[in-house]
Write a protein that binds this DNA or RNA. Structure first.
Lengths: 335, 335
DNA sequence: TTGAAAGCGCTAACAA
DNA sequence: TTGTTAGCGCTTTCAA
């Protein structure tokens, strides 16, 4: 059997309280007993039970991470960053892929509570705001990541989607493009909406006409992007450039262009968003608005841990600035 | 405060033992009290504490998953499959990225034990076999996934790497290629070795000479593959085809070819392994030996849960057959 | 069919 | 500086 605190205490000829104290570095313990106990602990290969400790009201040192889909590169890259920072601080993370379904979100949240996780990082879409509010009302630390619900009092880490949209647009506009297609996620996805808003705003500033038919909405996957890009490119006056709201959609756009025999960037420029591994492996590699995923992961963990320690002052919303990474999917228009 | 079993018992005017029994469907409880208790449970929004239950020796319904890097598409896709099947069966999964470092593996394993996970799925390389043996000796259910240690008595789910190598080779050979380069992972990685072995074996059978200089080894990332591919392609008599042992290396190969102005598949055919999302998004899309990731994930969870339930008979090693997916990175040689 | 009570491994007053 | 003891929320005999 695994050694317990009792075994250690017996071996050391002290009480479990004493052992507990050296374990937690609390109270005054003489150096000798301390050393002795420590020695015995590792002789017995004693590992304190997180479970038992948690039952007395202490932390479980476990965080829940809700994402739409862990196999989506954007989220798996973020997950890695979160895991790393968590590990630094002594936390494990449970992954939960929700497919953006409220029903799954609720199931997972209930589960995480039963397992008494110390905090929950939410990077998934939630339609019903109440789910979130209910969670918050229970006093469980929650941080929103890459999702925004400005009206809810919750710590949040997001990228400035609006600015990202602006960056994408001005890049294209500076290259001379005026007829530009946009492929966004479904309208209810706030981040996508913001990106589009920034993009359109900037177009206006440059005096580029916004054509409603040039704005398409769809799900977030490669295939969806391809379908919409095909629609855009087969129109009478097809755009000379397309802004895809994430890397997957951009890949779909790339495929559509290829299918139609259009060269990128000669015949079509493409700007995307995220800068996941996908943006780097396509041909041509994608010009994209990069989200600082590593930094976001780190930040979000720090925030939640601070909240746990009660160090957290007021709720805060951290908006990170995205950065345009110019690769080879965009070029000046030749007319 | 959250409702406990005591609250429910008090409300129902019964003892906690009775509540516990209806909770677990044990013992004989009259229908009336049963119903009454159930009603009260959901009125109080009672959620039994997994922690407390675990402390009495029951399961935590949590699995640990060790992978080299959750942001690597191969592993994130597998993780998703594992998570889904786990959810079906009531288990959560904690993700642990080890970077294939034994030191991290050990840290994570210790952590997982402290948290009393019910089982551990190991899909990461482990140099020191003892780590695994020690773990097994503690009686914790362990399943190896996509890793093989034939000498250790442990349930294992792998793909037939050797056959995969053969499939890749015969495809290329049938297309007329004879001068073929191979880019594998570091020699200590068994799966890669097996793929190469199958590949070489098949080359021999076709009477294609194996040139030692055409076999390169490196780490598993895109950049590594690019470097090695560059070496291969800049040799005096460069290969007309390259077999890359995973999709990332193949992407690197693709990049190398592009850099040298070689067209794929006209000037160079490429076959890879895994069939992650990467293989589908490159241009041209990669012909690749597909691993049935979804099935693997499902299987591995089932295995570990069976072991948990004591239903598990003897240790077994399940070898799944990979399948060649022909896309556009390979073509017949024109000489 | 129900309940009393011991125990899971640990923490934290409070005493000594 | 160290120990006693009462929980934490639940499961599980064993009695009633």
């Amino acid at each position: 059997m695994k050694a317990t605190i009792y075994d250690v205490a017996k071996e050391a000829g002290v009480s479990i309280a004493t052992v507990s104290k050296v374990l937690n570095g609390k109270g005054k313990i003489s150096v000798e007993t301390r050393e002795a106990i420590l020695a015995i602990m590792d002789r017995l290969d004693y590992q304190p039970s997180v479970i038992a400790s948690a039952l007395t009201g202490k932390r479980t040192f476990t965080l829940g991470l809700l994402v739409p889909d862990i196999s989506n590169p954007f989220f798996s890259e973020i997950a890695r960053a979160i895991e790393d920072q968590g590990e630094q601080l002594g936390y494990s993370v449970m992954m939960c892929s929700t497919d953006n379904k409220d029903e799954k979100v609720e199931r997972y949240i209930a589960l995480l509570q039963q397992k008494k996780v110390d905090g929950i990082i939410i990077a998934t879409g939630i339609d019903n705001k109440e789910i979130l509010e209910q969670l918050l009302s229970k006093g469980i630390p929650v941080v929103l990541l890459a999702r925004d619900m400005p009206l809810v009092a919750v710590n949040t880490v997001v990228v400035d989607d609006y600015v990202g949209g602006c960056l994408a647009a001005s890049h294209l506009l500076e290259l001379g493009h005026r007829r530009i297609g946009i492929i966004g996620e479904r309208e209810k996805v706030r981040s996508s909406r913001e990106r589009v808003r920034g993009f359109r705003q900037t177009m206006e500033e440059y005096g580029a006409a916004f054509v409603p038919e040039h704005l398409k909405h769809c799900d977030y996957k490669v295939e969806d992007g391809k379908i919409k890009a095909l629609e855009l490119l087969q129109a009478d006056e097809p755009p000379t450039a397309i802004f895809a709201c994430n890397d997957m959609l951009a890949v779909g756009t790339l495929q559509a262009a290829r299918e139609l025999g259009k060269k990128v960037p000669e015949d079509l420029s493409i700007v995307s968003f995220d800068n996941t591994i996908l943006a780097a492996v396509t041909d041509p590699p994608l010009t994209t608005v990069a989200q600082p995923m590593e930094h976001m992961g780190k930040l979000v963990v720090n925030l939640i841990v601070e909240e746990l320690q009660g160090t957290a002052p007021v709720k805060q919303r951290t908006v990170l600035r995205p950065e345009l990474i110019t690769r080879e999917s965009t070029a000046a228009i030749v007319s």
